[in-house]
Design a protein around this nucleic acid. Structure first.
Length: 546
RNA sequence: GAGCCUGUAGCUCAGCUGGAUAGAGCAACGGCCUUCUAAGCCGUAGGUCAUGGGUUCGAAUCCCAUCGGGCUCGCCA
């Protein structure tokens, strides 16, 4: 669907070469003002100095040398400081309908990243409780990126890292045991830094109901260990369920405990030692991260001889490198920004090429109701669970809202707006366009026969604008993947929906003559395919009725 | 003190790998339903792109400084 662009680039390159420019770099862009055309090149401004010509003069000379295929693009003139503008041929745009109908559910698929292996790690919440809304944005963004990478042909693996080892599991076990014993009449305090959530109480109640005082008979340490591991499994299960409900499937659940069983963290430590990047100070072992781009060194083994969390994390990332991915992406919260330089430094210390390691710092969300902020505090246990959000606004609205902003900006999620079934709710606006198209098909008593349709009848300005939008779909996917940010898809969806509504208003679909109806029905189907595919990349349903 | 993100219309934000007269959605105001879903469409109004410098043919976009907002700087995870 880039035939016109390829053709233009080729012609401009040839013209520049003829004028004596060796290996010119051609930039084609979309003019901001559609009046100027569909495609523009700044080639004349870039190369005018080299050829000692005024930019407009060079532009004139270039246009004379272009042998354009009128079925694809037409010259729209030289304008401004020296832009050369082009316009798509109507015939070219009209053939897109046929292409989209033929691609159908594969519309947008490409091969740009064929053969590439990509790993995206996201959410990776601690198994200390159910998922809360803080993880939901990462789930939505991460999953969309996975879908988009795959659409461009990459092999993409989604992964959740489970911190099911170390100190916090002990704290979790102690917290469960405290609740459990208290229920049995033997009051025990929840330890400092322990977990106070209601879900711990529920778990303890369940244990008492089903297994009585079984765990009281164990030593305190054994009971804590056992209960801690049981709680971890329970929470991982809850988290998996929440994610599946959110239409997020993780291909892998990487367990820290397994890393530790194979003593991978010590293997990594040994490797660091061999590279001469470790040193002892005050009884602790430090990694010289400052020599590899960080502002300071970090402890990997405490003076008590325990690994810090950093060491297994290094081992985990080393495993990512060893698994042979071309692109490794971590999606983390903004509070982990120090992690970026820290982990990259550690990988460099191990001689790894960190060009392949990318960390997306996804900014926080705030919740509000009709503009009033909703207070959330992890400490005070006022954290809203992901399931509660899904209960209240549903999966479609939740996923779409989390994609509405760039990953680098904070996002305010208005719960009341997400629930509203009206035009100020962006997800309904787009879904409505899709449903509206379906209702046309319900009404039309003509069978869609694209092979017989005469697409040259689609020459109303609103039809041609709609076609221009649909043509952009592949570019939008590509932009999202390149920028590692799916939000542009929501912008495109809104624009396609808006243009469809405009078309709908100006052009009657079910009409006379029948040839025109057929062509317009085909355009409707193509639009519907675009909306459906775009929504699907966002993980949002495209309803046929609303 | 050091670092990361951010500042564009009344509100929420696009545009940021430099291009032409800075856009959209809400909210406001005025129109459009005997016709395929009015959950829609059309129009009006709304701007010191935080501020000051720099880079160049050209800066909301890149660089520097200043100011405002959010976050982080542990031998916790």
């Amino acid at each position: 669907m880039k035939r016109a662009h390829r053709h233009l680039a080729e012609q401009i390159r040839k013209a520049l070469t003829d004028l004596g420019i060796a290996e010119p770099r051609i930039i084609l862009e979309k003019p901001r003002d559609p009046e100027h055309g569909d495609i523009a090149t700044n080639a004349a401004m870039v190369y005018c100095k080299q050829l000692k010509l005024a930019p407009r003069k060079l532009a004139e000379q270039l246009t004379k040398r272009l042998a354009l295929n009128p079925e694809l693009v037409q010259l729209a003139g030289v304008a401004g400081p020296g832009f050369i503008n082009f316009r798509f041929a109507d015939a070219y745009l009209q053939t897109l309908v046929k292409q989209i109908l033929e691609s159908d559910e594969h519309f947008g698929e490409g091969k740009d990243l064929a053969g590439k292996k990509v790993l995206i790690e996201f959410v990776s919440a601690n198994p200390s409780g159910p998922l809360n809304v803080v993880s939901a944005r990462a789930a939505a963004v991460g999953d969309c990126l996975v879908r988009m990478f795959r659409t461009l042909g990459a092999t993409c693996h989604s992964e959740f890292y489970v911190n099911d080892a170390g100190n916090q599991v002990k704290l979790l076990g102690d917290s469960v045991r405290a609740r459990y014993e208290t229920l049995l009449g033997n009051e025990i305090e929840i330890p400092e830094g322990g977990y106070h959530g209601e879900y711990i109480v529920e778990f303890a109640e369940q244990l008492v109901d089903e297994e009585g005082d079984k765990y009281s008979k164990l030593s305190a340490e054994d009971a804590s260990n056992t209960l801690g591991l049981m709680a971890v499994e329970r929470h991982v299960g809850m988290q998996r369920n929440s994610l599946e409900r959110f239409r997020v499937h993780m291909d892998g659940w990487f367990r820290e405990s397994q890393l530790r069983e194979s003593r991978a963290e010590y293997a990594a430590l040994e490797e660091l030692k061999q590279k001469g990047t470790l040193y002892e100070k005050d009884g602790a072992t430090f990694l010289r991260t400052s020599e590899f781009g960080d502002t300071q060194d970090w402890v990997v083994i405490t003076s008590e001889g325990r690994p810090t969390y950093f060491l297994p994390d290094i081992a985990y990332h080393l495993s990512k490198f060893k698994r042979g991915y071309d692109i490794i992406i971590d999606i983390l919260g903004p509070d982990h920004h120090s992690y970026l330089t820290k982990m990259a430094a550690a990988m460099r210390a191990l001689g790894r090429d960190t060009e392949h390691l990318e960390i997306i710092l996804l900014q926080h969300i705030t919740l509000s109701r009709s503009g009033e902020p909703v207070k959330m505090s992890k400490r005070a246990g006022q954290m809203i669970e992901m399931n509660e959000l899904l209960d209240e606004v549903g999966c479609d609205a939740a996923r779409y809202f989390f994609l509405l902003r760039r990953t680098t900006t904070q996002l305010d999620f208005d719960i009341e707006l997400a629930k509203k079934q009206s035009d100020d709710n962006p997800v309904f606006y787009v879904q409505y366009a899709h449903a509206r198209i379906q209702s046309i098909f319900r009404k039309a008593e003509i069978e869609l026969k694209p092979e017989k349709a005469d697409f040259s009848l689609l020459n109303h300005p609103e039809e041609l604008i709609l076609l221009r939008r649909l043509r952009e779909f592949e570019e939008v996917i590509s932009d999202c993947v390149v920028n590692r940010d799916p939000h542009a898809m929501t912008v495109w969806l809104r624009e396609v929906a808006a243009q469809f509504h405009r078309f709908y208003h100006h052009c009657r679909v079910i009409t006379e003559p029948e040839e025109l109806s057929l062509a317009r029905l085909a355009l409707c189907r193509a639009t519907q395919t675009g909306l459906k595919r775009g929504l699907s990349l966002c993980g949002v349903n495209a309803p046929e009725e609303m």
